[in-house]
């Protein structure tokens, strides 16, 4: 399973290219940090990797990628449902009975450093806890491809640090993970870096 980008570049109609000549191979069990200043096309590239947007230049080959899960900048959950229920839902949707789904969800919460929040309602979680819950929930889906868009942008420094630490937990779950970020800490947690400034049109 992998995704290969060959000479990929993109320009919106009537605009200058955001980036050009990007060639990279994305593989499972790695966390790719997609970095670059605001407006460099990080979200655009995520959409291209997801297959939602056709690149203006180059092509994308996807082998064995069956499912894509996104983790968005704003953590969104169900205010009055418990943290563990959030993670158990995708497991039950795949047919696990609640008891087993709850057990697997509890283990995932521990992996992401929020094991103690299991029974707390979503509305009572801090921003950092909520964002880590989103990561744990995305992983519960066992997606082929997990795309994480600016996970620390809305957080204070302390929470951002905790989320950055958790990004490492995304590796070794069998998914290809791409994290768009401009946060140095988050960047440091990634196993590979794709820097769009290197691909900015000259």
């Amino acid at each position: 399973m992998r995704a290969v980008l060959r000479g990929v570049g993109h320009a919106y109609p009537g605009g200058n290219p955001l980036f050009t000549a990007l060639t990279v191979t994305l593989e499972p069990d790695r966390v790719y940090g997609l970095v670059g200043p605001s407006g460099s096309g990080k979200s655009t590239l995520l959409a291209i990797v997801a297959g939602w947007l056709r690149p203006t230049y180059g092509r994308v080959e996807r082998n064995g990628i069956e499912s894509v899960r996104w983790v968005l900048q704003n953590p969104h959950g169900v205010a009055r449902r418990s943290a563990i229920d959030h993670v158990a839902l995708p497991l039950m949707a795949r047919g696990l009975p609640r008891r087993r789904a709850q057990a697997a969800a509890a283990a995932l919460l521990v992996d992401f450093g929020i094991g103690s929040t299991a029974d707390r309602q979503f509305r009572d979680l801090s921003g950092g806890e909520a964002q880590r819950l989103m990561l744990a929930r995305a992983m519960a889906c066992e997606p082929s491809l997990c795309l994480v868009d600016e996970p620390t942008a809305q957080l204070d420094q302390h929470s951002a640090a905790a989320v950055s630490q958790s990004l490492a937990a995304l590796a070794s779950k069998g998914s290809i993970v791409v994290v768009a970020t401009h946060d140095p800490q988050a960047r440091a947690a990634c196993t590979d870096i794709i820097d769009l400034t290197d691909h900015a049109p000259t």
Partner: peptide, 18 residues
């Protein structure tokens, strides 16, 4: 009123029937 959490549930693999 719950469209965000419901769209999210669909994204997480919950079927429309469920």
């Amino acid at each position: 009123a719950r469209r965000l959490e419901l769209a999210s549930a669909l994204h997480l693999g919950v079927s429309r029937g469920q």
